[in-house]
């Protein structure tokens, strides 16, 4: 455990060092972050400009869902995505050999191999949107709800991470998976809306098959104090089950790794 923490520290330090080499990126990323926030908020303002609720959600509550969406996306784009894009490149070039030669868990090693430190601005933006939503509601979340909300944020991130690992594992067999990751990003985009907005089959898909509800809707409901304990547990359990599945698929993928020729 101590080894992994030290490794995490070194990986973070190196990513920050790399990021510092390109200082202009800080300004660009800051501007991009603000722009993305505006783009994310705009549809919500348009939608709620003419009505008070959508599928039982008022504007401040829907803003909390959006805050979770932005938060999960910040973590994915800041940690998961860069690392796994690098992984795919390593598999293609054969540099993944060096990962397998290390006496640490290969999945953990590649999952934190690269960070985009500037994405912390997006995370702060997400927190800002959440605070704004509660200002609109006129009161803050209760401490217990805050705790469950944060715990479900963590499991939501894990669920998204598990989906990325499944995609990355696919690259051991198909090598090019650009389309798969685009599809995953497009599906995740639906997580900006509460799952109740979707009807019929779509709601089932977004709850059980590609569980975007676990990533944003349920955590938001927990923070708002509107989620029962059973659903909270099922949500966390579902995320962990997905994580377990991704681990199994990853291990199978490693076994079939053929290593690019020298």
């Amino acid at each position: 455990m101590r080894r992994y923490l030290r490794l995490l520290g070194v990986q973070l330090r190196m990513s920050v060092a790399s990021a510092m080499a390109y200082r202009a990126d800080f300004l660009v990323e800051g501007a991009m972050s603000a722009a993305w926030m505006a783009v994310a908020l705009l549809p919500l303002f348009v939608l709620y400009g003419e009505r008070d609720t959508v599928a039982g959600w008022d504007a401040p509550s829907a803003l909390v869902v959006l805050a979770y969406f932005m938060g999960v996306r910040a973590v994915v784009e800041g940690v998961v995505n860069p690392s796994l894009v690098e992984l795919v490149d390593r598999i293609r070039t054969g540099a993944f050999d060096y990962v397998l030669l290390k006496p640490v868990d290969a999945q953990l090693l590649v999952s934190g191999s690269r960070y985009e430190p500037w994405k912390v601005l997006d995370l702060l933006g997400a927190a800002g949107v959440a605070v704004y939503a509660f200002v609109l509601r006129g009161h803050g979340p209760e401490p217990g709800h805050l705790l469950v909300g944060l715990a479900l944020f963590a499991t939501g991130v894990l669920a998204m991470y598990a989906l990325w690992i499944l995609c990355a594992a696919a690259s051991f067999w198909v090598v090019r998976l650009d389309n798969l990751t685009y599809l995953l990003s497009a599906i995740f985009d639906t997580a900006r809306w509460p799952v109740q907005v979707f009807r019929g089959a779509w709601r089932i898909v977004f709850t059980f098959v590609i569980p975007v509800a676990v990533m944003t809707t349920y955590p938001a409901m927990a923070l708002l104090g509107a989620l029962d304990a059973g659903t909270a547990l099922a949500s966390a359990g579902g995320a962990l089950a997905l994580l377990g599945l991704s681990r199994l698929v990853w291990r199978a993928a490693i076994r079939s790794y053929t290593s690019a020729s020298s």
């Binding site: 490794l7 990986q11 190196m14 080499a21 054969g94 020298s262």
Partner: peptide, 27 residues
């Protein structure tokens, strides 16, 4: 395993950073 045609050094950083990483990995 050293492979003449593949690299484990981090491209944008000095080799000393890869060494620090390997130190953490190999404890």
């Amino acid at each position: 395993l050293v492979m003449g045609q593949k690299s484990q050094l981090i491209w944008d950083l000095p080799p000393s950073e890869t060494y620090a990483m390997n130190r953490a990995i190999f404890d």
